[in-house]
Design a protein around this nucleic acid. Structure first.
Length: 429
RNA sequence: GUGAACGUAGCUCAGUUGGCAGAGCACUGGGUUGUGGCCCCAGCGGUCGGGGGUUCAAGUCCCCUCGUUCACCCCA
């Protein structure tokens, strides 16, 4: 294959590069998240970035947008249909089944930080490859666990200082109550068919619950009078929801009951929730999830309840950057080394080696810059010290240690310079 | 997939009714024969997103295309 086009080669549509200067804030977020997960007793899980397509079509559901039009699916050379992971819950459930985890002490609680792939039309906060932090807990139908899982996410947002996120809470019911309710809603929608938009008329038959998040004003008006699932839950689901709310209150987590909150995956049962940030605009969801008591069985495992969430790393960072300014920056080097003359370059290189062996970050010039240029780099690097070596230093077997903030200089031995720099870097602030 | 706006130097952006492609920042050198930040001077840096068309002449007008952004949809 040859390509004679003069088009520049760019990152694929909807993808982006994470440059060195943007790594610090991500590492801080992930480190903070890991600590939160540890406190709640969740263990890290990693899975392949692609899975058999069947896992998602069965697990997430044939009727979902994800499965119908957003999957990166390809045939491998063995003719097997594979799909780049579009979401995390189904793969985690596959792991639970494949590794016989139902024999472990339950619930099995895991967390992940995974890239996700969806063929979507990109806009701010929405990409074709994005990252999600998530947790999943398998093997318990206790509503206390729902509340803990939501508590983990609230704790994460608290730990990173993300403010202004509202929690919306709903119940999707279960096999017992959702079917009859869906039928009742469908009947209601058919009665008002001529008042609905075209899409909602389709939804009436395919997935009536989805009509609730239609944005068309007259549809919303009609839906105001529609029967609500929360009023129609079976006794089991009502009790479950009641306990979830109580245990959220115990944690001091405030929430908004939103009976119109309908999430995109078919596997949700009972509790669903979503954290929204006003800082994000149209893509306001920063994280969301819910209970999925039928998922493990649906992909061929033993009947096992579960609950979990995913939260978009890019959305978290976007919301943070719009709300606060003091985010972690890359750490500057401990020292920048300057050679005043050609003959000093070896000495400077040697000193860099010594500093680095002690675990100190040292930078030096490779571009043959002028002295002024090297000093300028030293300044830009935000290193605390410049170590300067010229003719006089070589003759005296010394180096000049310059404090770049104050401009004070001392002439010291190489060992002493190393010590001073180490002390400044490691010593108490 | 649909609609709208926008693509000019590494970055942020000017560019008049079509008439020699610009500024600031950044980068390099110098002003300071051994010292950064402030200031001054100079330099480097452009297929004007790509392709086609109209015209004596296109960054500018028209068409197509790719990308970005915003919104719909949906999600994180």
């Amino acid at each position: 294959m040859s390509d004679v086009s003069s088009e520049p080669i760019l990152a694929p549509k909807g993808t982006y590069d994470i440059l060195p200067e943007n790594q610090a804030v991500r590492r801080w977020l992930l480190g903070t998240a890991e600590e939160v997960f540890r406190c709640y007793g969740y263990g890290r899980l990693d899975t392949p970035m692609f899975e058999e397509t069947r896992l998602f079509s069965r697990g997430v559901g044939e009727s979902t947008d994800i499965v119908r039009k957003e999957m990166y699916t390809f045939l491998d050379y063995g003719g097997r249909s594979m799909t780049l992971r579009p979401e995390g819950t189904a793969p985690a459930a596959r792991v639970f089944v494949e590794h016989g985890m139902h024999t472990r002490p339950l619930p099995v609680k895991v967390w992940y930080h995974w890239p996700m792939f969806r063929y979507e039309s990109p806009q701010s906060g929405r990409y074709r490859q994005h990252h999600q932090l998530g947790v999943e807990a398998f093997g318990s139908d206790s509503p206390e666990l729902d509340a803990e899982v939501i508590g983990v996410l609230a704790a994460l947002y608290r730990a990173i200082g993300l403010e202004g996120v509202d929690l919306r809470l709903n119940s999707m019911g279960c096999r017992v109550c959702r079917g009859p309710y869906t039928q009742r809603l469908r009947v209601f929608l058919r009665d008002h068919e001529e008042e609905l938009c075209g899409e909602c008329r389709e939804r009436t038959e395919l997935n009536p619950l989805r009509t609730f998040d239609c944005k068309v004003p007259f549809c919303r008006e009609v839906l105001e009078g529609a029967p609500r699932l929360v009023d129609d839950l079976c006794p089991g689901c009502t009790a479950h929801h009641e306990v979830v709310r109580r245990y959220l209150q115990l944690q001091g987590i405030t929430y908004i009951e939103d009976h119109r909150l309908v999430r995109g995956m078919d596997y949700y049962t009972r509790t669903t929730f979503e954290f929204q940030s006003a800082a994000l605009g149209a893509q306001s969801g920063v994280g969301g999830g819910g209970r999925y008591d039928n998922l493990v069985e649906a992909i061929g495992g033993p009947p096992t309840p579960g609950v979990g969430w995913g939260s978009g790393v890019e959305r978290i960072l976007l919301a943070l950057s719009r709300l606060q300014t003091d985010l972690p920056q890359a750490r500057p080097p401990a020292a920048y080394l300057v050679a005043l003359i050609q003959e000093a370059r070896e000495t400077v290189f040697l000193l860099a080696d010594r500093l680095r062996r002690r675990g100190l970050a040292a930078e030096l010039d490779f571009q043959g810059r002028s002295v002024k240029g090297q000093m300028k780099q030293a300044n830009r690097s935000e290193a605390r010290y410049a170590v300067i070596v010229g003719e006089e230093e070589l003759a005296a077997d010394r180096v000049t240690l310059r404090d770049l903030a104050h401009g004070e200089e001392r002439r010291v031995s190489m060992d002493e310079a190393t010590e001073v720099i180490a002390e400044a870097e490691e010593g108490p602030k």
